[in-house]
Design a protein around this nucleic acid. Structure first.
Length: 235
DNA sequence: GCGACAG
DNA sequence: ATCTTGTCGC
């Protein structure tokens, strides 16, 4: 476990946060071809909160993309750096997530985030933001469509429909299990939408959510319990 | 102006 | 995200 450090220039207001998004958005790299799904490492990141104690715990779990076996995992705890505001999730989650990624003993490969990338009101969601700040390849896989619209994908696993903001396609509603509610995939940094969907399917052989986010979710909850339930407290 | 709204 | 028991099903 490591301790998260909130950047000194972290925004204190929503206005500052939006200005930062507008400034960083231009650095996103779209449509970069990458290694095929099932190759190298795939890393899941997630965060759990205890608003009462002002504690946040993040986890990063590296999987072998072919076997989906855990290669490495790490956690980081810190203090909550921003309130939850729809559209500004990155400012709440990234400091601790980046502390965890920094402490990883190996290359994370593709990073799978719990939330959105391009499918964001300002086209700069959590996954895009993490990608620009780290240079890593990232995608976002969310459980809800946020404010976007989409048609229901056909029942079979692998079916998808565009996630739309007006006429613009910002992501895809992708069915990872036959007849089950789809997940909402969008591009973060240095990945194409087709690859983002292919990677998501490769990570969901059995459950609706990617193995990466399932592993990271379980781990950060455990870390929060240990940081909160016992005597341990972040500085 | 009011509600909705990733996690 | 989080508050929360048992229960149905693979």
């Amino acid at each position: 476990m490591t301790t998260a450090q909130t950047p000194a220039d972290w925004p204190a207001t929503e206005e500052e946060a939006r200005a930062i998004q507008d400034a960083l958005r231009a650095r996103v790299v779209l449509d970069e071809p990458g290694p095929p799904p099932g190759t190298g490492h795939v890393t899941g990141v997630d965060v759990a909160y205890d608003d009462e104690r002002d504690v946040v715990a993040a986890a990063a779990v590296v999987l072998d993309a072919a076997s989906l076996e855990v290669v490495a995992e790490i956690t980081a705890v810190g203090r909550i750096s921003f309130p939850y505001v729809p559209g500004l999730l990155a400012f709440r989650e990234l400091p601790t997530v980046m502390a965890a990624l920094d402490a990883l003993p190996c290359e994370p490969g593709l990073v799978v985030c719990d939330g959105y990338g391009l499918a964001h009101p300002r086209r700069f969601g959590l996954a895009s933001h993490l990608g620009v700040l780290t240079g890593l390849r990232t995608i976002g896989v969310a459980k809800n469509p946020f404010t976007f619209t989409h048609d229901e994908p056909a029942p079979p696993r692998g079916s998808s429909t565009p996630l739309r903001a007006g006429e613009e396609e910002v992501g895809r509603a992708l069915r990872t299990r036959a007849g089950v509610k789809p997940v909402f995939v969008s591009v973060g940094h240095r990945v194409t939408l087709d690859d983002a969907c292919a990677h998501t399917l490769a990570l969901t052989p059995r459950f609706r959510l990617p193995e990466t986010t399932r592993r990271a979710d379980a781990l950060c909850r455990r870390a929060l319990q240990e940081a909160t339930g016992t005597s341990a407290q972040p500085v």
